[in-house]
C-alpha cells in the first residue's frame, strides 16, 4: 500500500509541478486506521512546494456514514476559507487519473497539533492566554459560512444527537449507570432549538494547528462537518477528554469559557449562553464514552484487531469520572 501511494505521489508531483517535477520527500504522518495523511514535497516549475495528502484507504459511503467524503471536506475548507476561516489552502482534489483513491492535497501549514504540547509546552506559554478567544473568533467565520449547495450534510440538534448515541449505546449491550444518568439528565435539559449553522463537527484541541507566534494557524479534520447548533462546536472543545491534563482550563486545556464566548461575540457571532455550551460539553463526554464502547466492540467483533481498541474501551471510565462531576454541578 505504501509503495502505491509513493508512486501516486511521484505522478502527482508531475501533474501539479509540471513535467520533470521530482518528489523531494514523502512520508506518512500518524493518522487513523482508515484515513492516511502524507507529507510530501517536490521541486516544480515554480519552485519547491510542501504539501499534505489526505486520503482514505478503504471504501466509503457518504449516505450511511457519519462523516463526509473527502471531496466534501475539500469544498467545506474552500468555502469557509473564502469566508475568512483559518483553514489550509486546498491545492488539488484528486480524481481517478491520480490513482490515489479518494484524496485531496493541501498546502502544508507549520505549527503544532499535539494537544498535550499546546497545553504544557513552554513554547506556547506566551500565546496560550489568547487561544480561547481566538478559537471563539475562528468559529464565527465557520458558522457564518452558508453550507455550499449540493453537499450531503446532515442536520443535527440536541434531541437527534442524544437519540442517535443512545441507540448506539443500547446496541453495544453495555450497562453503565453513569451513562444512563447522563442520557436521562441531558434529555431533560435539551436547549431550545436555534437557527442551525454550518459546524466543523470535531472542533477540539488536537484538530487545530497552533503556531507559537500567532495562535490558531489552521483548523483541520473536517470529516465530521454537519449543520446544527453553534454551541455544539464550543462544547466539544470544552470536553475534558480534550483538555490533556488541565481540567482547570475548560477550553481545550488552555483557556476559559469567558474568553471563548467573548471571542465569538467580538467577531460578530450570535450570543450563546454558557449553559448551552455546557449542555454540549456534557453531551461531548457522553458521546466520547459511547464512541469508546463502540471502538472496544469493533475489536470484540473481530472487525479491528489492534491492541489499541480494547484499551480505548477502558477510556469509558474517564468520561464517567467527568460526567459525575458535571451531573453534580448541573449545566
Amino acid at each position: 500500500m505504501e509503495l502505491d501511494v509513493r508512486a501516486g505521489l511521484e505522478k502527482l508531483a508531475g501533474r501539479l509541478g509540471g513535467e520533470g517535477a521530482r518528489l523531494t520527500e514523502a512520508g506518512r504522518l500518524s493518522g487513523g486506521a482508515s484515513m492516511e495523511t502524507w507529507a510530501f514535497g517536490f521541486e516544480g516549475r515554480d519552485g519547491p512546494e510542501r504539501l499534505i495528502l489526505r486520503r482514505r484507504n478503504g471504501p466509503f459511503d457518504e449516505e450511511s456514514a457519519r462523516s463526509v467524503s473527502l471531496a466534501t471536506e475539500a469544498k467545506l475548507i474552500q468555502a469557509t476559507g473564502a469566508n475568512g476561516a483559518r483553514v489550509p489552502q486546498v491545492r488539488h482534489v484528486c480524481d481517478d487519473s491520480d490513482g490515489l483513491g479518494e484524496a485531496y492535497v493541501m498546502v502544508r501549514v507549520d505549527g503544532e497539533t499535539l494537544g498535550k504540547k499546546i497545553v504544557s509546552d513552554p513554547r506556547f506559554d506566551a500565546i496560550r492566554p489568547a487561544l480561547a478567544r481566538q478559537c471563539g473568533e475562528s468559529l464565527v467565520a465557520i458558522h457564518r459560512t452558508p453550507p455550499p449547495a449540493g453537499l450531503n450534510l446532515k442536520t443535527v440538534d440536541g434531541v437527534a444527537e442524544l437519540g442517535r448515541y443512545e441507540e448506539v449505546y443500547r446496541a453495544t449491550g453495555a450497562e453503565r449507570p453513569i451513562l444512563e444518568l447522563a442520557f436521562q439528565y441531558l434529555r431533560k435539559h435539551v436547549p431550545t432549538p436555534v437557527e442551525p449553522a454550518l459546524l466543523h463537527g470535531d472542533f477540539r484541541n488536537g484538530n487545530i494547528m497552533f503556531d507559537p507566534a500567532v495562535g490558531v494557524a489552521a483548523i483541520l479534520d473536517w470529516e465530521l462537518a454537519h449543520v446544527g447548533d453553534p454551541a455544539e462546536d464550543m462544547g466539544w472543545i470544552c470536553t475534558n477528554s480534550w483538555r490533556f491534563g488541565r481540567p482547570d482550563r475548560p477550553v481545550g486545556g488552555f483557556g476559559d469559557y469567558a474568553d471563548l464566548l467573548a471571542g465569538y461575540a467580538s467577531a460578530g457571532g450570535r450570543e450563546i449562553e454558557l449553559s448551552r455550551v455546557r449542555f454540549w460539553q456534557m453531551l461531548g463526554s457522553l458521546r466520547w464514552g459511547v464512541m469508546c464502547l463502540t471502538m472496544y466492540l469493533s475489536w470484540a467483533n473481530g472487525v479491528e484487531k489492534s491492541v489499541e481498541r480494547p484499551m480505548i474501551g477502558r477510556r469509558v471510565s474517564e468520561t464517567e469520572a467527568d460526567l459525575v462531576v458535571l451531573l453534580e454541578e448541573g449545566l
Binding site: 483538555r243 463526554s285 477502558r314 477510556r315 471510565s317 474517564e318 460526567l323
Partner: peptide, 19 residues
Amino acid sequence: LTIMARDQIAIDQPSYKPE
C-alpha cells in the same frame, strides 16, 4: 456513582485528571 467512577478510573487510567 462518584465513588464507582473514581475507583474505576484509578484502575483504568490513574493519571487522568477528571473534571
